[in-house]
Structures are given as C-alpha cells and as structure tokens.
Design a protein around this nucleic acid. Structure first.
Length: 882
DNA sequence: CACCGAAGCTTTTTT
DNA sequence: AGCTTCGGTG
C-alpha cells in the first residue's frame, strides 16, 4: 500500500461508482484496460479474464470439480447463505470459487465484493487461489482482507469524521500498554497496584463488545482502580485522539461509528458492496458482527439485532441510485454490467462460512452465538452443510465426531468420507510415564516413520506435526529433537516485528513519517543513550502537554529556551535536527536508503555494534533483514502500514521439518500424521478454561480437541502421561476425560511402551507400577482406573454431572478439598490452604523419586530431600508417609 | 545511569 | 523452575 495522502473514495476499477480519476502506478487496471493498459507486472482485468473463462466453457471448469453441496454454496448467489463447513470439507474452495463465479457471471466487479478473513494468511491464501481460478494474481480485489485491514481502509477515507487525520498511527499492544501506564500514572494512581497490562486487557474486552466508555457495565468500571475504570478508558480514548492514533479495536469501532452516524456514507457502501463473504464466521466477536450487519443491512429491512439499535436513515427502499445502471465504459460487452434487481430490494447477498465445532477463540471475545443465530439474523437464509470430508480417514473422522458429539448447543454436523481403506489405522492412544518419556517416544515414532517403508516410501517430516495445548509443552520436544538431530520448526513463536531492535528501528521510522507520534518519540529519544534521562523527558512531556503539541515540536521549541541544562539541551537539539533532516529527505530519498541512513546517523546501529552481548550480532542481522524487507514496499509509509497490520514471520519452506505448534495455531492446517501429546486432566482440558469458563470452557476445550484430531489426514497419535512437571513441580496427572469420549471402534491403545512402568526398575527404587502386569490397554492404567473410580465415587455422592465425569485438580490426592460444580457440571476443585498433613522431617515416598525426607513445607508444596533424586519440590498430594 | 536482587508472572493469539 | 520486570542502591 502506498501513501495515503490521496485516497480515492472509490476504486479505480469500479467504473460504475468511479469518482476519482488518476489511477496510481500500482492501481489495478480497469477491466477495459485489460490487454492494453495493463503492464506486465500489473494484474488488472480479472473480471475480464474471469468472463473469458466463462465464455470458453459452457459449464465452467471451476464448477465441475465440486460436490453438489459445494456447488450449491457457490451458485446460491442471492440472499443470505450460511455455509457450515466441517473440517476438511473444502471451505476455502467454496469461498474462492464463489468469488470466481460472481466475477465470471459479471455479477459484480472485483471491487464490489467484500471478502473478510481473520488472518492475513487466510487472506493471502484466498487471493492466491482466486488467482489460480481466474488466472493470474488478484490485486484487483481491493476489499479482500482481514477485518482490520479493511477497517483501516475505511477509516483512512473518513478519519476526520471521528476526529482523526487520515495519517493516523496504529498502535500495537506494546504501545498501548505503555500509553495506559502513562495515563494511570497521570491520574496519580499506583501503576503497581493497577497494572497497565491488565487494564489494556479490559479495554480490549470492551472493544471486542463494541462498548464505549459510557457503555461499559458498571461492575467492570468499578473493578479497576477504585472505580476509575470508566474514567481511565475515556482518558485513554482522548489521549489516542490527541496522538492521532488508533488501537486495533478502534480499527473496527471507528468505522462502525462512521457508518452509523453518516447514512449517506453507509448508503454508498451498501451500493458498493454487492456481495459480502465472511470466512471463519464462528470466530467473529460482537464488534465484527455489528460491522458486518451494518454493511449487510439493506433498505426495507428493519434492524434485527438489538445490539445495533436503530439504524440511521435508509427508510425508503429502492434500487441504488443510478450506479448499477451505468454501462461500464468500453469493456465491450454490456452483459458484464453488474446485474441488479436483488440488490437494494431487501436481499442481502452475504455468505458466511464457518464451523461452530471449530470455535476456539471464545476466550478472546468470539461469539459462537453469531453463527448459531445466523438464520434469525438473516431471515430466509439458506443454510448449506458441507459434511463430506476430503481430508481424513474414516477412523479419524469417527473419533473426532464421537468426541464432539459430547458438546451441547451445536448446529450438528457429521463428517463422512467415502474413503474406507482397510490399511488405514485407527487413532492410537499412548501412555507414557512422564513428559520426558512422551517426547522420547514421539521422537522414536517420528524416526521410524521417516525410515523408508517396504515400498521405499519415506514419510516427510513436513507432513508431521505435534500439536500441544500450551506452549510450555513444546520445550520438551525441542530438547529431544535437538538431541536426536531431528529437524523441527516451531510455529507461532516470538514474532519478528515484536523484537526489541525492530520495534526501536520502527519507532525511528514512525517519527519520520508521523512526527506527532509521541510514543515512538519517547521510545527512542534516549536510545541509544544521549544523556536525555527521566528528568529531561518529564520536563519535555509537561511542556508539550501544557501547549498541546507533540513532543518533537515541543523539543524543537524548548531547545530555543534555557529551560534545560546545557548538556541535555545540546543533545535534544541534535535529535531535533536529525529528525528535521530525515523528514526532509522522506520525499526525495529512496526509503530503504533513508532507513539505513537513519539507523546509522542516529547511532542506533553503532549501539549494537558496540554491544558485546551474545545477541547483538543477531540483532544487527535482524535490522538488515528489516531494511531488506522494506524493499518490497513503495514507501516508508506503506511499509509501516504493512507492519502494523501484518505481524507475520515467514517460515522457510525448503526445510523438511516436523512442525511443533499449539492447537490454536493449527486451525486450518492439515498433516499426514499428527501427534497430540498431553491429554491429561488439567492440561487438556486446561484447568483454567474449566475454572473460568465452566461448562462453556469445557466445550471449547473439546472443540480444541476436535480441531486437533481433524488436522490429521492419515495417522493420529494421542499421548498422555502420568507425571508432568508444571511450574517446576512434579504433578501426578489423570488421563483426559476426552480420551474417555473417544469411540472404541476407531481407537486402539498402543502396546505398552517399553519404558512405561519400567522407570522404577530403571533407577528410582520400587514403584507401585512395577508390581503390576503391563497394562493391556491404556484404559487399565492406574491413572485411568483412578479416574473411573473417582467417577463412580462422584456419582454415588451426588457430585456427578450430566455427563458423569468427575474431575480432580492435578496433583491433589484423595484428601484434597471437595470438587465444585458449575451449572451442574462437576468442574474443579479449588486449591485451598489447609494445614499440611506432613511435618518437616517426615519420611515419605514419591512415585517418581522414591523415598526421601521432608525438608520444608510451604502450604501444599513440599521440599523433599530424596535419597536418590536429590532435593525436589513436589505437591503433597502425591507423596505418602512411609 | 548501571547493576543487581527481589518479586511477579507462567493457556490459548490476531490484528 | 525460569524468565522478565521493577525498584532500589551504589
């Protein structure tokens, strides 16, 4: 994206609505220009190409490969459509084909299609795939993007309506927290007692629900800073306005405000967007929902959602002015004129695609309810279920389907497949003693898969993934794979753009492009060290606030006075001069060159060159990489915009490596073989999800399990361990209730792993497990039995639940406090501090570490000197006095 | 301003 | 336990 000084309201390839002339060099060519006006690098005219494709075949190629349901989803263009697309049923294919179909029928120009995704990755993939269908890359779809990137686009056009300039800055989480901290301090509050981070989280939650400071619940407002929550939120919004800045939430909320309060603008967009498509609808939060409803709203239709209140204007019905009636200039055929009739007559051509069973972001504000309510929201909606799965074996689908059936409140889909290969293996459940053994065994399995089979075929590491519930689980696998020399890649680690040096460099660039960006200023004014300490900055800050000017401007003024000590004054003078010089170069110097110049002249590069720490060379390398990545952009501004919205870090695809990632980041991906470790109560389902989310939390965890299972195409291996170290404490764990929810006919239990139960023999003295026969199956492990025992106990005691599952807090022995119930579901035992049943000096026995003496007691945590294993901290739930 | 010890975290993640 | 962040001291 280029600079935003000159933002056409309408897109250049949209002749029907065209108002602004002069397409920029990179602008998509208008359809008429295809073949003549478009340059080699340009990819304009996709409508024309799509139509050519249509003309060439009676039944277009792109439709022929679809199954009947998919085809219906693609071809039902009029009215609201909800596509319930189960995992692996061709969701993306439907979306992209639908767009290609609309284009090819000439129903709309590319710029008249609004297509929204959640992630940049999804948007990118869709663009690519539409390009494949239509031929060539699709830059001609200006309104295909994430909620946020489209929000930015809207907002840049109408910024002044919410008191911003169109060159507003987008703050990331880090900036936001720093800003809030300042505000908390400015209110004279203790920022220790009232952490900025926490408040940032609260604001985020409110914004997900589209709540203004005035609208937040009284209880929420009271919950922070002695009732100052509302005040602080308002102060924060004010500050943002002064800074000419937005946070991520505002990228949705400001457009909502604009569309609500400006009926004429809303009307323009109604005319403009003939088709709306939404991906992953189950993940929309309230704000996104409202945004969509506004844009999908059509005349003659009363607002349906109470959330929205009365819609402004648009009471009269009618065809949208003359827009659709105009003949597109010189395309050569009148029939590509976007057809009309249904548009504006009350029909909403919105198509939402999603899967309620894969809703896993409730914790960050997604409302599954949005998808469950679709038919009420859009009366007359056609609901199409895609249940034919093209990804997984019948066993995997059977296991996943049986598991997810334990959830209530689903729309209800059952995936099926035609594929019934007797060679296909069942889902395998494995037991391991502890997480170390789990990692070792998974590593062995991977190595054996990697060896050529009897047909000489090797299983690529790229086709395998380990999907964990929580990121701390990754380390054990990494350690093991390093030992084995097995390639792996961790997906979703720390991001490039979040690194310290990158953020510093970006702050410099931001200052040059947006001199009013005080947060950037404060970040780098004394980086590298220039002798501009706290006192000077505070001084400057007050000066700027008093005059209501940006800090850089204040600095420029203050160095002319004698308010500062000579040393600081000189240093500040130099900084000001630097920025003035760089800003002047902005229009004339190539941006990558300027960027380098800035980092050099500011002394930032030198700072790291002089740094002797181990990470300094890496940081310098990252800075180089940063400059390199700037080359793909037209301007520094365009680059900044990209970075603020796209925080992706790219992975090297050439390496054959096992992927390690969380279940959350696995959504949308598929692998030949999937490993699902850590299926233990407390970890998965996660204790906190249960504690905080109750029954709903449990169901979301179950959906997460479903997502995990359905990532697998061919093989799926689930693991659970009996002992796991969490926060440095060894805890004994029970198999996950989800294991119990798998159907026996699709699941097999692995033969006892050689070391399971053999650990005691290995070195820790006697273990209870040693005395037992190898378990015939995992359902016969002590942990499992204990779980079953617990279950029956619970039922007998009337602690049971509808689904009859008892729950035990990890590491808590039978003596622990009673479980509590939420909505009738036995959910958790809360930790209480009871007097310890142990005393210092007691001789105790621990399953893993053997015998030892208690050295210290701290609540329920015991420090024990073990005879063999040395000093360890363990929970008292699992040692016994001897 | 730089260094060090104490203290506070520790589910999932996008934009 | 292990990491980051904060605040105090030299």
């Amino acid at each position: 994206m280029s600079g935003y000084d000159d933002i056409p309201f309408f897109d250049d390839d949209d002749p029907a609505l065209k108002k602004t002339p002069a397409p920029g060099p990179r602008s998509p060519a208008v359809p008429s220009a295809a073949g003549s006006g478009s340059t080699a690098g340009s990819t304009g005219g996709i409508a024309a190409r799509a139509m050519a494709a249509r003309d060439a075949h009676r039944t277009p190629d792109y439709l022929s490969g679809l199954n009947p349901e998919q085809r219906e989803a693609v071809e039902t263009l009029d009215g609201p459509v909800l596509v319930l697309a189960g995992a692996g049923t061709g969701k993306t294919r439907v979306l992209t084909t639908r767009i290609a179909h609309i284009l090819s029928l000439g129903r709309a120009y590319p710029s008249q299609i609004l297509a929204v995704t959640f992630t940049n990755k999804a948007a990118r993939e869709m663009k690519e795939r539409i390009g494949l269908l239509v031929g060539g890359a699709v830059e001609g779809m200006p309104w295909l993007g994430t909620f946020h990137s489209i929000g930015v686009k809207l907002l840049r056009r109408h910024a002044e309506l919410v008191g911003l300039r169109s060159d507003f800055t987008i703050l990331d989480t880090d900036d936001v927290v720093r800003l809030i901290k300042q505000i908390i301090q400015a209110e004279g509050l203790d920022d220790k007692r009232w952490p900025a981070k926490q408040f940032a989280g609260m604001i985020d939650t409110w914004k997900n629900k589209a709540l203004d400071p005035a609208q937040i619940p009284e209880g929420d407002a009271r919950a922070f800073a002695n009732g100052k929550g509302r005040e602080l939120y308002a102060a924060y919004q004010n500050r943002l306005k002064t800074l000419n800045a937005c946070d991520f939430g505002d990228l949705l909320l400001h457009p909502i405000r604009i569309l609500r309060t400006n009926p004429d603008i809303l009307k323009d967009y109604h005319q403009k967007f003939r088709y709306i498509l939404v991906d992953e609808y189950q993940d929309t939060n309230t704000a996104q929902y409202m945004w969509l409803r506004l844009l999908a709203q059509r005349s003659g239709r009363r607002p349906i959602s109470p959330l929205e209140g009365e819609m402004p204007g648009r009471a009269e019905g009618g065809i949208p002015s003359d827009a659709g009636a105009r003949t597109p200039p010189s395309v050569g055929s009148a029939d590509i004129s976007p057809s009309r009739g249904e548009i504006g007559s009350g029909t909403v051509n919105i198509c939402c695609v999603g899967d309620d069973d894969q809703s896993i972001y409730g914790w960050r504000g997604a409302e599954v309810d949005n998808i469950l309510r679709f038919e009420k929201d859009f009366p007359g909606a056609k609901v199409i279920k895609l249940e034919r799965n093209y990804r997984s074996t019948a066993h995997i689908l059977g296991a996943a389907g049986h598991l997810i059936a334990h959830n209530e409140g689903r729309l209800g889909k059952t995936l099926f497949t035609d594929r019934h290969d007797p060679e296909d293996g069942k889902v395998v459940v494995h037991a391991a003693w502890d997480s170390e053994e789990e990692a070792r065994a998974v590593g062995e399995t991977i190595e054996s898969l990697q060896r050529p089979d009897r047909n000489g075929k090797r299983h690529n590491l790229n086709d395998m993934a380990i999907l964990v519930r929580a990121s701390f689980q990754m380390r054990e696998f990494e350690d093991r794979f390093v030992t084995l020399g097995l390639n792996y890649r961790v997906i979703g680690g720390p991001r490039f753009y979040e690194r310290l040096e990158i953020r510093d460099a970006m702050a410099y660039f931001r200052m040059v492009c947006q001199p009013a960006d005080d947060l950037a200023f404060e970040r780098i004014v004394n980086t590298p060290k220039r002798g501009l300490g706290d006192t000077t900055i505070r001084n400057l800050h007050d000066y700027a606030r008093a005059r209501d000017i940006p800090m850089l401007a204040a600095a420029s003024d203050i160095v002319e006075t004698d308010e500062l000590k000579p040393k600081a004054r000189k240093a500040l003078f130099d900084v000001v001069a630097d920025f003035k010089r760089w800003s002047a170069l902005l229009e004339t110097t190539p941006h990558t060159e300027l960027a380098e110049q800035i980092l050099d002249e500011s002394g930032y590069t030198a700072m790291w060159q002089n740094d002797k720490s181990a990470e300094a060379p890496g940081r310098l390398e990252n800075l180089k990489e940063l400059i390199r990545s700037m080359e793909q952009f037209e301007s520094m501004r365009g680059f900044l915009e990209h970075v603020s919205l796209v925080m992706d870090a790219e992975t090297n695809e050439n390496l054959d490596a096992v992927s390690i990632m969380t279940l959350h980041s696995a959504k949308g991906l598929e692998f030949e073989t999937v490993f699902l470790p850590g299926w233990e109560e407390g970890l998965f389902p996660h204790q906190r999800a249960l504690d905080e989310g109750g029954r709903a939390g449990l169901e979301e965890e179950r959906r997460l399990a479903y997502v995990g299972l359905t990532r697998a195409k061919r093989n799926c291996h689930i693991w659970f361990v009996s002992n796991r170290r969490i926060h440095g404490l060894w805890q004994s764990t029970m198999p996950s209730r989800f294991l119990d929810e798998l159907p026996e006919n699709h699941v097999e239990v692995a033969e006892t792993e050689q070391s399971y139960g053999g650990y005691g023999r290995g070195g820790y003295g006697q273990s209870r497990f040693d005395k037992q026969e190898p378990f015939q199956n995992a359902y016969a492990t002590p942990g499992w039995r204990r779980a079953q025992q617990n279950k029956t106990d619970a039922t007998r005691d009337n602690w049971g639940s509808r689904s009859g599952h008892a729950v035990e807090r990890i590491g808590y022995g039978e003596s622990g406090p009673r479980a509590r119930t939420i909505e009738g579901e036995l959910v958790a035992k809360s930790t209480t501090t009871e007097p310890s049943r142990f005393a210092i000096g007691d001789r105790v026995f621990h399953l893993k570490f053997g015998n030892g003496n208690i050295a210290a007691i701290e609540g329920n945590k015991l420090t024990i000197d073990f005879d063999r294993a040395g000093q360890k901290k363990v929970l008292d739930g699992f040692v016994e006095r001897v």
